[in-house]
Each structure stands twice: as C-alpha cells, then as structure tokens.
C-alpha cells in the first residue's frame, strides 16, 4: 500500500458516497446516467468475485463490500425508488457497444485464460469506458449539477492517482500490470475534457454548462 493508492481508494469511495448521498438527499437522480451505474455495478461484480475465493486483508475485503453495496444501492435508487426522476431520454448510450467489444478484448488480451482472470480483465477494460454514458448524457443535456461534477471529479481523480501508484510500485516493487496501466491511462484521458471544464468553471463558482 502507498499514499497514491490509499488516496486513490479514498477518492473513489468519496465519489461513490457523494453520488449516493446526492440521489438520496435530493430524492432525485436527474442528470445521472443509470447506464453508467449499471456498468460500475458490473465492473465491481466481475472484479470482486475473488471475495469468495481469497482473503487479502480486512481493508481489501471491507472496501470491496462497500463498493459493491453502494453500486447496487445506487442502481436500485435510480431504477426503482426514484425511477420517476430518471432522465431516460438523455441516457441513451447503447451499452452493448461497450460491453460486447470489451468482452471480446478481455478474451483476446489477458494475462491468463482462466475464468476469474478473464472476468478481472473484463472488469478492468469495462471500468475504463464505464463513464462514457454519463459523459455522453452531460453532452446531450449540455449541463450538470454541481454535486454531479464533484462526483465526476473524485471518480476521475481516483484512477489518475492509481497511475502514480503504479509508477511507485514499478519503481519500489518492480511490479507492473500492463493491462491495468493501459486501461487506467485510457480511463483518465477520457476525463481530461471534464477536468478542464471542472477547473475552469466549477472551481470558479460557475455552473458546468457545455457550449450548446
């Protein structure tokens, strides 16, 4: 464990909690892409099946359970409890355009053709593009609630911090995982446009609105 990975995990946890609280407190999931949340629930489910097979540490186990629990709670709030506030018209990204290619790639490019390893690889690739429906939705509506931008900021920051974690681990432990690194770079690049808008607008107290 190193400072980059710890702050990365805490940033990820903060993002997940911010989103859950936003939906719960405002009793509305306006502006939130339910499809991205389904993808995140799928990412955690396929990545954390090793909860059933191996124990790494209490921290590891507890964080995985929190992530999975919050992901499914968020999907439940969006599609069941506050379904009336779900903006399905703007959340129109075709999930099959992500899941099918990612599934195929996971079968072609992986470290080991075993069940858990393929699922882990699938979850790594899927996570790198899971935010696309949400970013697509914001580009369609042309704006995002400020609390949603904070959610996206911490979510994007977490994987950026993981990039530093991997540099650290390569330098000090000689460990590196090319699949996780390449997917992490892609994932972080997808946020660059948003990061620019977040820093130049939201941090200056303006609302995040895309040029119509």
């Amino acid at each position: 464990m190193n400072i980059f990975r710890l702050t990365g995990d805490l940033s990820h946890l903060a993002a997940i909690i911010i989103l859950l609280l936003k939906i719960w407190k405002t009793r509305s999931c306006a502006g939130i892409s339910g499809k991205s949340q389904i993808l995140f629930a799928l990412v955690f489910t396929t990545r954390y099946l090793d909860l059933l097979t191996s124990f790494i540490s209490f921290y590891n186990t507890i964080m995985k359970l929190i992530y999975i629990g919050c992901a499914y709670a968020t999907v439940y709030l969006i599609y069941m409890k506050f379904k009336a506030t779900y903006d399905g018209n703007h959340d129109s990204f075709r999930l099959e355009f992500l899941v099918v290619p990612v599934g195929g790639l996971a079968c072609l490019v992986n470290h080991d053709f075993s069940f858990l390893e393929i699922l882990w690889t699938f979850s790594i690739y899927l996570e790198s593009v899971a935010i696309l429906p949400q970013l697509f939705m914001i580009s369609k509506t042309g704006e995002a609630e400020t609390i949603t931008t904070h959610y996206l900021f911490f979510l994007g920051l977490y994987r950026a911090l993981y990039l530093f974690n991997w540099i650290w681990r390569f330098y000090f432990e000689g460990f590196f995982d090319m699949i996780a690194i390449v997917a992490g770079v892609v994932q972080t690049i997808l946020y660059c446009d948003f990061f620019y808008l977040y820093v130049t607008k939201v941090l200056k107290g303006k609302k995040l609105s895309l040029p119509a």
């Binding site: 990975r5 995990d9 990820h12 090793d50 790494i56 540490s57 590891n60 964080m63 995985k64 992530y67 470290h111 080991d112 390893e117 882990w120 993981y162 974690n165 000689g174 460990f175 590196f176 995982d177 090319m178 699949i179 996780a180």
Partner: peptide, 10 residues
C-alpha cells in the same frame, strides 16, 4: 513479472 498472482488492488 507475473501479475496474475497478487490482485491486491481494488
């Protein structure tokens, strides 16, 4: 560098 062993990252 066999990375399939330690999946200790979240």
């Amino acid at each position: 560098l066999d990375s399939t062993t330690d999946k200790d990252e979240l």
